[in-house]
Design a protein around this nucleic acid. Structure first.
Length: 636
RNA sequence: GCCGGCUUAGCUCAGUGGUAGAGCAUCGGUUUUGUAAACCGAGGGUCGUCGGUUCGACCCCGACAGCCGGCUCCA
């Protein structure tokens, strides 16, 4: 344990000490340190309130002042069990005791009257906890399993000094100012309307400009890399998703199917309730999943194996992924090995049923647009194509200055049967991902259980302002869908061969990416992305005509500009431009009008002095065209 | 979905069992302004929705919806 973890871990023991003084009935579970502090999970009938938190914190202060030593005591398994029982903590602690492997030593740590089963280590005295704060109460399932009882989790944090604690709390406060939900509202980038629905993003004009610029950017890169652009509809027949496997494997995450009118009339005629309908859909998917699982590793299900009697209901599904549609475009004509790779790209909108408690601004939504593409290639081409995809992701992130990401290679969970396809192919695909990730030149972590149901993937993961991780770009190797859809191409030997598919989305979804991007820039977008690039600020009405003339010139040059026509003093107009995060304000007074110049005020540098408009415009155009990153904002 | 908290004007937020207030924004006027907030005035809310308690509810109780923080989930 690092010294900081030790301090925080001791914090959680002190928390428990104080808690038991105030609530002797509390049953303790576990209290580990975290990246940012510590918590303790407790089972307590009394619902803890914010006021309780203050009382507990005050009691913790007393424990600290009592300067209790932390003392380690080793015990045999039987002794340990006795200690736990004698303290009335058997409800969870006995289970935790049972988790300790046979060969490991069992230890307790005691401070004052409190004693806890604990491997350690701890600071020497409670007085070491000089700077701490309890932060919040939340529900947390015992052992992280939603089938178990939900306990109350008390979060807190601790630092070696009061200054560091204050700095941390200040940082958290600063971060909240960058929250994309706040900035998005302030700058009017997007809205979510409860009548439209939770998790459904409405892109306002300003936000749409950012999205459009990003899409233009990525489209340019796709043209360079030989992609073809396609368009497909937002729904597909249930049949399609039975073949793809989404229907059985992905059921929990999908919107309820749109049942065809005739089908609906038929089952309603049979007296089916809504519940019956759902049950029937469940029966179909359960049967399909069962059939597929039996065959995993030996046989596979292809289109012709779906039996007619399994089509109990006809209807459509809102597409949860774009791949089946793209596959059908690929399959619509015969392919030669000479055609490959075929790369089909689409900004494709998909819909997924996320639990209401999981929705979050733009980063976790129910409808989103992926910058998606599917590559159909020969097995020999997989490595090369993977590199191309990773280089694309790299270009994207570099251009936006987003260097703060981690790479995750998502592999199968060895204990799960939620995957489709042959073991050999999974092995090949996982090896390909691993190899490709190595070429990135950045550290990556292999994580079992993070694969898609059809194949392993390489994900790019970033953190939001409050430290939550979000997956953005993703590249996935897939040997399975080509089999399920019986895709083939003619090889040099004039025999049919199975292509390999690569799924990839450098941004992941436009919604999530923009959410993270808003936080990344704190709303101070580079000029090429800024909804308003130049604010024309006449010093008074007297120079309004000059401003209008320049507005025309800027618009003709493709620059997004606007005039501040408010009847305010200059300072107020400057302030408005700053608050609205416009990268350039051009101050236009009589001097400027006279000399055909502009007084430039940039978000980054403040007052830059005057320059002829004829010099400013090319400089601006170049900055936009090159998609330059802006210098950091000058603090007022 | 689960636990807890929250919901008052476009935004940020006060407020009391006797049907509401500030700042900013908006609109009108005065001012004609030189690098982060000129001045005066006006309009704007069935206090999230629906029920209940009460002579009377924005306030107390309940349900629902939405939001926020966690947990679970994220193929």
């Amino acid at each position: 344990m690092t010294p900081l973890e030790e301090l925080r871990h001791s914090g959680s023991h002190i928390l428990a000490t104080a808690l038991l003084r105030l609530f002797p009935d509390a049953k303790l579970d576990i209290g580990p340190p975290t990246d940012t502090g510590f918590y303790y999970d407790v089972d307590l009938d009394h619902k803890l309130t914010a006021e309780d938190l203050l009382r507990i914190e005050a009691e913790m202060k007393k424990v600290v002042d009592e300067n209790q030593p932390f003392v380690r005591k080793e015990a045999s398994r039987q002794e340990a069990s006795d200690i736990i029982r004698s303290r009335g903590q058997e409800r969870y602690k006995l289970g935790r005791l049972a988790d300790i492997p046979e060969e490991e030593k069992i230890s307790f740590y005691q401070n004052g009257e409190f004693m806890d089963l604990c491997a350690g280590t701890h600071v020497r005295y409670t007085s070491k906890l000089k700077a701490f704060k309890l932060l919040s109460i939340a529900g947390a399932y015992h052992r992280g399993d939603e089938k178990n009882k939900q306990l109350q989790r008390i979060y807190g944090t601790a630092f070696p000094t009061k200054e560091e604690l204050a700095r941390y709390l200040d940082q958290v406060e600063q971060a909240k100012q960058r929250d994309h939900r706040k900035v998005g509202k302030d700058l009017r980038l997007f809205v979510i309307d409860e009548d439209v629905g939770q998790g459904l993003i409405l892109w306002t004009p300003a936000g749409s400009i950012i999205r459009q610029e990003l899409q233009n950017f990525i489209s340019e890169e796709l043209r360079k890399q030989g992609y073809s652009q396609v368009f497909t509809p937002h729904i597909g027949k249930l049949e399609l998703y039975k073949i793809s496997g989404h229907f059985p494997y992905y059921k929990e995450s999908q919107f309820t199917p749109i049942v065809e009118n005739e089908s609906l009339a038929r089952i309603l005629g049979e007296g089916c309730s809504c519940a019956d309908m759902v049950a029937r859909l469940d029966a179909v998917s359960a049967r399909l999943a069962g059939q597929i699982n039996e065959r995993t590793g030996r046989e596979t299900v292809t289109a012709d194996r779906i039996k007619p009697d399994e089509q109990l209901l006809d209807g459509f599904m809102l597409k949860p992924m774009n791949c089946p549609h793209h596959i059908k475009i690929f399959a619509s004509q015969p392919h030669s090995y000479r055609d490959l790779p075929v790369r089909l790209a689409e900004f494709g909108t998909v819909y997924r049923w996320e639990q209401s408690g999981e929705l979050n601004g733009m980063t976790r939504v129910r409808g989103f647009t992926q910058d998606d593409a599917h590559l159909f290639c020969t097995e020999d081409q997989v490595a090369q194509e993977l590199l191309g995809c990773l280089s694309l992701v790299n270009t994207v992130l570099t251009t936006l200055g987003m260097n703060d990401y981690r790479v995750r290679v998502g592999l199968r969970d060895p204990d799960s049967n939620k995957y489709t396809g042959l073991k050999e192919n999974w092995d090949k695909a996982e090896a390909a991902c691993r190899e490709a990730a190595k070429t990135l030149g950045v550290a990556f972590k292999e994580e079992p259980g993070e694969a898609a149901f059809y194949g392993p993937k390489i994900d790019f993961v970033v953190q939001d302002v409050i430290g939550r991780e979000w997956q953005l770009g993703t590249v996935q190797v897939d040997y399975n869908l080509p089999i399920r859809f019986d895709l083939t191409y003619s090889g040099a030997d004039n025999q049919p061969h199975r292509p390999v598919m690569i799924h990839r989305a450098p941004f992941g979804s436009m919604e999530r990416f923009c959410g993270v991007l808003i936080e990344h820039f704190g709303g101070d977008f580079p000029v090429w992305l800024s909804p308003e690039q130049v604010r024309l600020v006449p010093v008074s009405e007297k120079t309004l005509d000059y401003a209008r003339e320049l507005l025309g010139a800027l618009k003709a040059a493709g620059v997004r500009a606007a005039i501040d026509e408010h009847n305010d003093k200059l300072g107020a107009k400057i302030r408005r431009s700053e608050v609205e995060k416009v990268p350039y304000a051009l101050i236009l007074g009589p001097k400027e009008a006279e000399s055909r110049s502009v007084s430039i005020r940039s978000r980054a540098k403040g007052d830059e002095g005057s320059a002829p408009f004829e010099q400013f415009l090319p400089r601006l155009s170049q900055e936009i065209r090159s998609r330059a990153l802006s210098e950091k904002r000058k603090q007022p």
